[in-house]
Amino acid sequence: MEHAFPLPVPARGRMIYIDPPLWPAHNTVFSHLVSDTSLAELHGFAAAAGIDARAFDLDHYDVPVRRYPELVARGAVEVDGGTLVRLLIRSGLRIKARERSASLVHPLLARWEALVPGANGLGAELLNRWGEPHRRYHDRRHLLAVLEAAEQLSEGPPPRTVLLAAWFHDAVYRGAPEDEECSAELAGKLLPEAGSPEAEIREVQRLVRLTAGHRPEPGDTAGMLLCDADLSVLGRSPEAYRRYLADVRREYAHVNDADFAAGRRRVVEQLLEANPLFSSPAARNRWEEQARRNLRSELERPRPAREPQD
């Protein structure tokens, strides 16, 4: 859409901004709607305008061209795309590329190729699974975080079996108790195609199954490494931990608030009962103290109403 008037340069303040509808998708073009103040302000504006909550994408709403004039009439300030990005960065609300699942396909595929040369097809299949639309926490960002955490905890390169298990540990994810077992079975089905020997496959399956309870036996170095890497999110900064909680809530959007709160409380209490929470000294030194603060804070925090869903 072309404009017959110049786009204004915004002043600082509590405003909602929109860029021109130039981004093609679904047989139309889209604008981005953002706030320079808070996501709460953005969600409030979107709800009042009747924008589907599923149009929210981490730090903005995608809105089709047909809604553009109405949203401007409602008070959204027109800016060019570059100005909109700068406003997001200045506000601190901009989500970096590594926090966007879709941006991680090529970096993760490069990691897979280094781990299993010549099996790009299998790597692409796994990345497609990790990119399924119902995932909000257990997505490619989580896969990368587990791989990086395993590297941080290892004195040298992590064992190949641990890295393979990281790739498979949530390859099947439906939020069901049998997910880990199904993921282990998937490893048994697909790894022969990559030339993995039988002993390696059995070890990968064993490690994947351990992530169901995160309780490796003493002396199980590989199991401790994978389980601690999987739980490393608990030791993030308070802000990052809040984002993790929001993502988990979105994964369980089909569960009502009361049931979700009760189930989440049981999970947190079980985690706090574990002493220690992390199995290895390296993980305890890195994350134990912060993880316990985050978990206790979650129990003490009033449970908010469900946030808008993507």
Results as ranks from 00 to 15, higher is better:
residue 272 L to D: 10
residue 158 P to Q: 06
residue 2 E to R: 15
residue 41 E to G: 01
residue 12 R to P: 13
residue 224 M to A: 15
residue 68 Y to G: 00
residue 44 G to K: 04
residue 166 A to R: 03
residue 182 C to F: 14
residue 284 R to I: 02
residue 187 A to V: 07
residue 38 S to T: 12
residue 74 R to S: 03
residue 15 M to S: 13
residue 270 Q to F: 04
residue 24 P to W: 04
residue 40 A to Y: 01
residue 204 V to M: 10
residue 160 R to V: 12
residue 180 E to P: 08
residue 66 R to G: 00
residue 36 D to Y: 00
residue 82 G to M: 03
residue 138 H to Y: 06
residue 213 G to D: 14
residue 302 P to N: 04
residue 250 R to T: 09
residue 164 L to F: 10
residue 58 L to I: 14
residue 199 A to F: 10
residue 270 Q to Y: 01
residue 4 A to S: 11
residue 308 P to D: 09
residue 46 A to M: 03
residue 288 E to W: 04
residue 235 G to R: 01
residue 120 N to L: 15
residue 59 D to E: 05
residue 89 I to Y: 08
residue 178 E to G: 11
residue 154 S to Y: 06
residue 44 G to A: 14
residue 39 L to W: 12
residue 148 E to C: 06
residue 288 E to P: 02
residue 8 P to N: 04
residue 219 G to S: 07
residue 109 L to A: 12
residue 206 R to E: 04
residue 28 T to Q: 10
residue 83 T to G: 05
residue 288 E to S: 05
residue 251 E to F: 05
residue 241 Y to S: 03
residue 102 A to E: 15
residue 112 W to M: 05
residue 217 E to T: 09
residue 13 G to I: 02
residue 131 G to W: 05
residue 204 V to Q: 09
residue 239 E to G: 13
residue 248 V to A: 01
residue 16 I to Y: 01
residue 278 F to K: 06
residue 108 L to P: 05
residue 190 L to M: 12
residue 23 W to Q: 12
residue 273 E to H: 12
residue 33 L to M: 04
residue 167 W to Q: 03
residue 124 A to L: 15
residue 67 R to G: 00
residue 201 I to Y: 07
residue 177 P to H: 10
residue 138 H to E: 07
residue 72 V to G: 00
residue 44 G to Y: 02
residue 77 V to Y: 00
residue 48 A to P: 04
residue 5 F to E: 15
residue 238 P to M: 08
residue 196 S to I: 08
residue 104 L to A: 08
residue 59 D to T: 00
residue 307 E to C: 01
residue 2 E to N: 14
residue 15 M to R: 14
residue 227 C to F: 10
residue 16 I to L: 04
residue 148 E to L: 13
residue 62 D to E: 01
residue 260 F to D: 09
residue 244 Y to R: 11
residue 286 R to K: 13
residue 75 G to W: 03
residue 144 L to W: 11
residue 299 L to G: 02
residue 139 D to K: 07
residue 208 V to D: 08
residue 276 P to A: 07
residue 117 P to W: 07
residue 246 A to W: 11
residue 283 A to Q: 06
residue 302 P to D: 03
residue 43 H to R: 00
residue 150 A to F: 09
residue 28 T to A: 03
residue 257 D to F: 01
residue 234 L to P: 07
residue 223 G to S: 10
residue 61 Y to G: 01
residue 204 V to E: 08
residue 215 R to G: 08
residue 221 T to R: 15
residue 5 F to C: 10
residue 177 P to M: 05
residue 185 E to G: 08
residue 229 A to P: 02
residue 290 Q to F: 02
residue 14 R to N: 12
residue 53 A to F: 06
residue 115 L to R: 04
residue 249 R to D: 12
residue 272 L to T: 11
residue 206 R to K: 05
residue 63 V to P: 00
residue 216 P to K: 04
residue 134 H to C: 11
residue 199 A to L: 14
residue 175 G to W: 11
residue 55 A to H: 06
residue 234 L to H: 10
residue 142 H to E: 03
residue 300 E to W: 11
residue 137 Y to W: 14
residue 274 A to V: 06
residue 256 N to T: 12
residue 34 V to A: 09
